[in-house]
Every structure is written in C-alpha cells, then in structure tokens.
Design a protein around this nucleic acid. Structure first.
Lengths: 342, 342
DNA sequence: CGCTCCCATGGGAGCGCTCCCAAAGCTCGT
DNA sequence: ACGAGCTTTGGGAGCGCTCCCATGGGAGCG
C-alpha cells in the first residue's frame, strides 16, 4: 500500500545520491570519509543526507564490506561471580564511553557453559564481530587461545602471566600492593602481614610481589609466617586472618589482596577483640562497595577500572583499524584510597 | 589467490544447496524451520550443513529479511550508579541465559548523556534492533515514551507507576516489604520504623505501602513519626536513622527500603551504642553484597533478579515473534533472606 | 478415469551497500 | 599546444540471503 519497502521505507543511499544529483559511489565516499570527493559534491551529499534523515543500513554495509562494526565483550562467567562485580560494571562504562562516538556496536556475551563457549566459537568463526574484549582471564582459560587461533583481534583485561603475548590492559597490581604496604609501614606499623589471593592467578601473585618488595625495601626481609593464603572469598579471608593471629598475636597491620577478604579479616579481628585501626590497621584491594560500606570503611587500592575499559576499547579499535597483529600491553597505575581502617 | 571471498571464504547457502542436491529455497526452508519440506530433502540438507560447517551469514539474512536478530539492553546511566549494581548484573545473567539457545544477539547500550540518547534513537529508528529491554526506569524518564513512539517492542524492568501500560517485569515490592515488616513484628518487636526510598520512585512507594499494610494488619495503625525518608544512599540511611532515634529512642526494629540505607542505619545504631539485633532488629531490601558482608549480615528482601532477566527476555521475544502489540505485565514474588540482623 | 487441489521444489528478483573499473575533466611540464 | 598523470565521478557487479512465483507431481474426489 504505502510507498517503499516492508518496514519503514527509510531512505537509501541511492535516494541520497539522486537528491544530491550525484552517483552512488560519491555518496558512499562521503559517508565513509574517503578521499577524492570535491567540496561541492561533499556539501551536496551532506545536505541531502540531512534533509532525508538518511542512516546507513548496517546489514547492507556488513554484507557488502564483510565487516560488522561490532565488537563483543566476552565475560567468562565464573569470574564475574567473585571480586569482579563492581569491576566489571566500571569497565563496561569505560568501553561504552569510548565507543560512544564510534558507530561500533557492543555485543555482550556471558559464557557460562561449554555449550555457550561453542556457540561463541561459532559466532567468531562466522565473523560476526570485528574484535573481542575478554574480561578477567584465568591462567588456564581456554578462551584466549581460541581467539588467538581464530585470528580475531582481541584485548584482554589483565594478563594470564608475566609473558602474556596477546594485547592486554592491566592495572599495576605490584605497585598498588607495594604502596599499600608502604603506607602501613609508614604509619609506624611493625608487624605487617598479608592475605594473598589464589596464587594460580597472576594478579594475586603480583599483589604478593608488591607486598614483598615493600617489606624488603623496608629492611624487614621476608617472613613467610606473615603471609597467609586466601582465595578472594570472605571465608578465605577469615581463615587466613585466624591463621595469622595464631602465628603472630601481635600483628598490627594487614594488607589483604581483596576487599572481600579484608572484610572477612575485619570480622575476625573484631571477634577477637581487636580494634581497627587502633590495634590493627587494614588495607584492602579493589576499592569495592564492600570497602566503602564496611565499618570502619576500608582503605583500599583503587584500580582505574573505567579507564581500563576505555583503554581496552581504544586498543582494540586500533588493532582492528590497522589490521596489524601488533600486540599492545598497557599497565595503568593504581592509587591508594585512604579511609578509616588505617 | 585463494578460492572464495575476501575473508574466510566460508560456505554459503548456495554451496549447501549444491552439495545437498537441492535448490536454495529448500535449504532456506530447512534452516528456518519452514514447512513444506520432504523428510529426504531435509535430511540431505542437514547433512550438507554439518559437512560444510555452514553458518548462516547474519548480515545477508538481516538485509534480505529486514530484521536484525538482535535486541538491545538499554541502561540509563544514573540508575546503575545507585542500588542497581548487583541487580543489573543478575538481570543480565538471566537475559543472557534466556537468549543462549536463541540466535538473538544482545547489544548493550549505556545511556549517559543526551547525546548518547540521540544516538540510541537513531539506532532504533534505523531499525537496528528487533526489540529493547529497558532497565530501571524513573518516573519521568524520556526513554520509554521514545520507544513507545517508535513502536519498538520493549520490556521494562520495573514500572513507572501503578498504571504502567508498556510491558514490564517487576518484583513484588509491596509483598516483600510487607513480609519484612511482618517478620519484624512476628519477632515480637513493638516499635517498627521504616526508612523509605525517594518517593518519586514507584518501587520506593511500593515498599512503603508494604510496610504500611503490615503495620495496619497488625493493628498498629499508621504512625507517620515511624516513617523517615531516605534516598537509597548510605548517607540518606544514616540521616533517616538519626531522625528516627530522635523521635523514638526506644525503636526496636527498622525496615529499610534498601540494603545500602540499612548499612547507613546500622552504622548510626552502633554509634549510638545500640546492638543489632539485640536492641534493634534491622531488615534491608535487595539482598545485595552490602547485606551479605556487613557486620552483622543483614536480613534482606531478595528479588528474583536473574529470573526477572529471563522473564524479560522471554516476554520480549514473544512480543517480537508474535508481532502483536499485546502488553504483558509480570510481577515476580520476592522472598525474605534471614540473617543475623533480626 | 479425469480434474482439482495442494505439497514440494527451483530459482529469479532484489534487499542496500561497497568495491572497483573505466571514463571524463584537470593541471602541468616541455 | 599536446600528452602524461593526476583527481573526480558514475555505475556495474556482487555480497548471501529471503521472498515469492511458477512448475511439476501426487493424492483425493466425483
């Protein structure tokens, strides 16, 4: 009945061309910012576009040009559950902000089951995204290798090990942990312990490294009895704290490698009648809601999460654009947020 | 050099047809589950698909069929910042799970600036998504009306008011608040106060309603001096708690309309030397990380967030599929998670 | 046994774009 | 003044799919 196609009958490139009195090719060049267009032609086309309210058809473009103008943010589920919650949302914010003045679309893929991983692989093989942002990767995660094999441009958040080859954006875990520990030492604390994360995670090892470096530098050497191992859970934090108190009842400071563990430690300290920060000073890591809302609020090492997201997006876009296989490794610095626990 | 197209040279529908010894039409019918295909033809096509590892080209399909097989999850930013954090991620999980065995893609759009909203409108006008899930809407939010006007199938999480017309999936805020209050009363508490959220939010009004209903039913009438207004922030919770204590030093129970506010209240209670739950029992709302990690852990009303996500996705898919404009309104029940604060 | 009707099928047309080639119009150098 | 070498332009071909029409049978009915 009505004019035009099935749905909407929106303006096409061809209509723009006619209106502007030029050929399809010229309109296409203008839209894509390609060279070799005279100023007059460009002006005419732009006017026609504005008048018609023309918006390029994504599908047609994707089909003709064999690209999708979409990137995927892939989140292996187990991660999200843990410390990653606020982290993830902030990263997302950054990514989204960076993409805002691109016309890249952001696809979200939560991968929980092997079945979903297969589907992801299919998606990727089918070339449905131009690139992938992969959040929080374990040491032995299968996804990075898969992506590498498929040759899909990829940026990781965090690295799997010291010698990560793929592009990544990471926070300076070592530096953060070091400054947290230095802060504790600087406050005159003598017996500074640490609660580590699971050491099969690179980030956890880095945080332990930072602690060690600071202790070394202060001439305290490395007293392994001041190191207790947690697993980034609250319960792990409690257990570790109990262990530490048993070994050193006189502990007067603790650096926990995550806020959640610090929360557990806090609980145990209070249970055992110790006051924070008077008797024991406590620093966490992540600057999460837990840190802000605990009582007392926890000093914590903040990662520039949103900035990490922005950077990841930027690096990925570059990689896609340049069609190179140059890997970029970015480490952003952390800072220490002081609150009442120290 | 190599055979095939630019990138990949993956199998096309035409190749499948040839291999199966049928026409393009038949293959298309098989793929789309259309009727009028003989069992033999179907089998032959399916075999050819498996052998070739054929995956339909999304762009071509979108172009030809004028649909996108993608839905957008739209998040107006200001919301996310507040109580929505864990909420959002759980909803996302549900949506993702529900979409997992569809071949719908999930696009994520964070809307922070008016400029971004304009871009969203463009996207929608350009028909780049088949439907929209809209998270956490304010009373006067512009987005729902925009979507309605554009005629894009949409499902809201939460409703803007009693008489929301668009499709939505909401939690039973009234019921949750009522049962929290009943729980407090059931424990023999006499003076049960409440800290509300901002009353220009429908959800906050509902939670107050629930409290009122429970108090009424218990024959306590409505004592407005037991109602203090917060704004879903911790600071707001503190202020409200102080106010309440001033008016009623003998308060022995508080229902806070959010965990974050409950956290603030908890702080004030402790500051004023009251023990929780011995002197004052406390219930929050949302069952967030704050509730789990505070000391003592807070009893809280849990919303079935993941289920809400699933339901939203399901409702949206139905709406898209059926091409109807029938609105669906779903209210899922909440449950009370008991912890040590009561 | 002949006719109608419907199921199953093949393939043309076309979705809206990009890519690229050929042609046309310039500028410049000699 | 004329050719070489640019920039600028138009439009054909084709991306891989869906839609739909025309065709060929087979079943069912009178």
């Amino acid at each position: 009945m009505s004019a035009g196609g099935r749905r909407g009958g929106r303006p096409t490139l061809e209509m723009v061309a006619e209106r502007a009195g030029v050929g399809r090719g010229t309109v296409s060049r203008v839209i894509n910012g390609a060279p070799h267009v005279s100023p007059q032609a460009r002006a005419a086309v732009e006017e026609a576009i504005a008048e018609l309210g023309y918006i390029p058809n994504r599908a047609a473009r994707a089909l003709a040009a064999d690209r999708t103008d979409a990137i995927a943010l892939v989140i292996p589920e187990p991660e999200t559950r843990l410390s990653a919650e606020p982290f993830f949302l902030d990263v997302l914010r950054g990514v989204s902000a960076e993409l805002a003045d691109t016309d890249m679309q952001l696809l979200l893929m939560l991968i929980r089951t092997p079945q979903e991983r297969r589907r992801l692989a299919q998606h990727l093989e089918a070339g449905r995204v131009d690139g992938v942002l992969l959040v929080s990767v374990h040491e032995g995660a299968p996804l990075p290798d898969l992506l590498e094999r498929l040759g899909v441009p990829t940026v990781l958040s965090g690295r799997r090990s010291e010698r990560e080859r793929m592009s990544y954006v990471d926070a300076d875990n070592v530096g953060g942990a070091r400054s947290a520990t230095e802060h504790l030492l600087g406050r005159g604390r003598r017996t500074v312990a640490t609660i580590t994360g699971p050491l099969d995670m690179y980030a956890a090892r880095c945080r332990l490294d930072g602690y060690t470096q600071a202790m070394d530098a202060a001439g305290h050497g490395v007293d392994v009895s001041l190191v207790a191992h947690g697993d980034f859970t609250e319960e792990g934090g409690r257990a570790a704290m109990r262990e530490l108190l048993e070994r050193h009842p006189g502990i007067d400071a603790v650096f926990a490698a995550s806020d959640v563990m610090a929360g557990g430690a806090l609980h145990v300290l209070r249970q055992t009648g110790r006051r924070v920060p008077d008797d024991v000073a406590l620093v966490g890591f992540d600057d999460s809601t837990v840190a802000r809302h605990s009582d007392p609020p926890l000093s914590s090492v903040r990662q520039p999460t949103e900035e990490m997201g922005r950077t990841m997006a930027r690096v990925l876009l570059e990689e896609i654009e340049s069609r190179t296989t140059v890997r970029r490794h970015v480490v952003l610095s952390t800072d220490l947020v002081l609150r009442e626990s120290t």
